Amino acid sequence: MIIRSITSDETLPLRQAVLWPQKSLAFCRVENDHIGKHFGVFSDTQNELISVASIYIEGKSARLRKFATATKYQGQGIGTKMIQFILQTLSDDKIDLFWCDARESAVGFYQRFGMKISGDKFFKHNVAYYKVEIKLNKQEKV
């Protein structure tokens, strides 16, 4: 498995297939896709794109959006490796806060990385979400 930077256009088919199969590719775009950092996980054997994630940085805060792993590859640790890669990359880049709007069904996944719920449940397109976040590069008191 290889994780590398990809373009926003490369993320679209997997975003659609996993997150919003009933919607158009255009629906799966994010307003600022052109300025986001996009990552893809590729299988070792077929160089197949099997997971995508997009990060949008504003100041010292980074937001994860449109994180998707192909259904047949879910439950194999691929998403875990992607989040670990992103957390390390953001920490190296001196980002202080990493957050996302997590589907209610995925909150436990994010909590495994130390992310905490911030705020109340809310809905987007009739799907329940929570904001989850983690502080990176914590300053130690002297």
Rank of each mutant, 00 (worst) to 15 (best):
I2M: 10
I2F: 09
I3W: 09
S5F: 14
S5Q: 13
I6G: 10
T11I: 06
L12Y: 01
R15P: 02
R15Q: 08
Q16N: 13
Q16W: 00
L19H: 03
P21D: 06
Q22C: 03
S24Q: 08
L25T: 08
V30R: 01
E31S: 08
E31K: 09
N32S: 06
N32G: 03
N32V: 00
D33M: 01
H34R: 01
I35E: 09
S43I: 13
S43D: 12
T45N: 15
T45Q: 14
A53Q: 02
Y56I: 04
E58I: 04
K60L: 10
S61T: 07
A62G: 07
A62D: 07
R63Q: 15
R63E: 13
L64D: 04
K66C: 03
A68I: 08
A68E: 05
A68Y: 06
Y73K: 08
Y73G: 11
Q74S: 09
Q74G: 10
I78D: 05
I78H: 02
I78E: 07
G79E: 05
K81I: 02
I83H: 03
I83G: 09
Q88D: 14
T89V: 08
D92W: 00
L97C: 08
F98C: 04
W99A: 04
D101I: 02
E104S: 11
E104N: 09
E104A: 13
S105Y: 00
A106T: 03
A106F: 01
F109V: 01
Q111E: 15
Q111F: 07
R112N: 14
G114W: 04
K116E: 14
I117C: 06
S118P: 00
G119A: 11
F122T: 11
H125Q: 14
V127C: 12
A128P: 15
Y129D: 11
Y130H: 12
K131R: 13
V132I: 10
K135I: 00
L136Y: 06
L136C: 09
N137E: 12
N137H: 10
N137R: 11
K138Q: 14
K138T: 10
Q139D: 14
